[in-house]
């Protein structure tokens, strides 16, 4: 395998005695989309900002394409493109000016095509403060990829975006990945991580609680399939109804929810039971375990420890 493009070794960051990140290590290879997941305060943004050279690690080493972010200066800005979680431009900067400004500092011709690509073509004369939050984030993305960076770092990129903008962003990420760009993505959106990430790491209280592909992580959990059933006379709610391979059940509104280790026999038994009870089935849903379920499992376990 190629040498990792992003290398994090025993990285540690402490803020006035509070350990924000506690010795984490991971590698990201060329063309991978690596998702950093975790609840608020888990250390995702601290990790990203240290890789971006905005913060100095208190321990361990960080490398981007062999370059130390704390010492690289302008070499780093040529290597990485960043969409920060909290960033801004001067209020009276126009969209087109912002593109010309940053491209000039990267020493490249302005990429006005990207302004169109992120759907801001008709807003290129608008000042930054006249853009909506979603438009500002799209502009930040266009500026981040303008110089074709080897590594793209995205911190909550779809936060505040509408459905169409989100789809556009996902398409752009896939294109960049196909062209060999390495993407480091911090997100709260599990569907986004499942859809885009080749590998993910779940951060919890500054440590990596789990890492692997979304499928590996999901398979490593309890693996319980959720079977939600609603009937006309609610006969499933009666005490004493037990079905095969159900490890636990609960009520959610009008639905009885079964968590099954083998969904086929469970569903067959439920339908047979309803036939005997002459209780017509109104709705039955089967949901395979998701990354979100696994995430909740891990973070809940971590919180109760």
């Amino acid at each position: 395998m190629d040498a990792p493009v992003i290398q994090v070794r025993e990285f540690r960051k402490v803020y006035r005695g509070f350990v924000a990140v506690d010795g984490i290590s991971f590698d990201v290879h060329r063309g991978e989309v690596f998702g950093l997941l975790g609840p608020n305060g888990a250390g995702k943004t601290t990790t990203l900002e240290s890789l971006e050279g905005l913060r100095r690690p208190d321990g361990g080493t960080l490398r981007i394409a062999g370059v130390d972010p704390t010492r690289a200066g302008r070499r780093l800005s040529a290597l990485i493109g960043v969409q920060l979680q909290a960033s801004a431009l001067p209020d009276s900067f126009r969209v087109g000016e912002a593109m010309r400004f940053f491209c000039a500092y990267h020493g490249i011709a302005p990429r006005m095509d990207l302004i169109d690509r992120v759907g801001l073509g008709d807003r290129s004369a608008a000042q930054y403060h006249e853009l909506s939050g979603g438009q500002q984030r799209r502009l930040a993305l266009a500026l981040a990829v303008a110089h074709d960076p080897a590594v793209l770092i995205l911190d909550e990129p779809t936060s505040g975006l509408d459905v169409a903008s989100r789809a556009m962003l996902h398409e752009l990420i896939r294109e960049l990945q196909a062209a060999g760009t390495t993407v480091l993505l911090a997100t709260h959106d599990m569907a986004e991580a499942s859809e885009l990430a080749t590998r993910v790491a779940i951060l919890l209280r500054g440590a990596i609680a789990a890492t692997g592909t979304p499928l590996e992580l999901t398979a490593a959990g309890e693996g319980l399939t959720r079977v939600s059933v609603r009937t006309e006379r609610d006969s499933l709610g009666r005490p004493g109804t037990v079905f095969p391979f159900v490890s636990r059940s609960s009520r959610l509104g009008d639905y009885t929810v079964y968590f099954s280790t083998d969904v086929g026999p469970t569903v067959s038994a439920v339908i047979a039971y309803l036939a005997v009870q002459s209780d017509p089935l109104v709705d039955l849903r089967v949901e395979r375990p998701s990354l979100e379920d696994r995430f909740l499992e891990i973070t809940t376990e971590g919180a109760t420890r």
Binding site: A78, S87, A88, Y105, H106
Partner: peptide, 11 residues
Amino acid sequence: AGIFRSYKING
């Protein structure tokens, strides 16, 4: 407001 941060990461 984070404007300088945006500037820094863009060189």
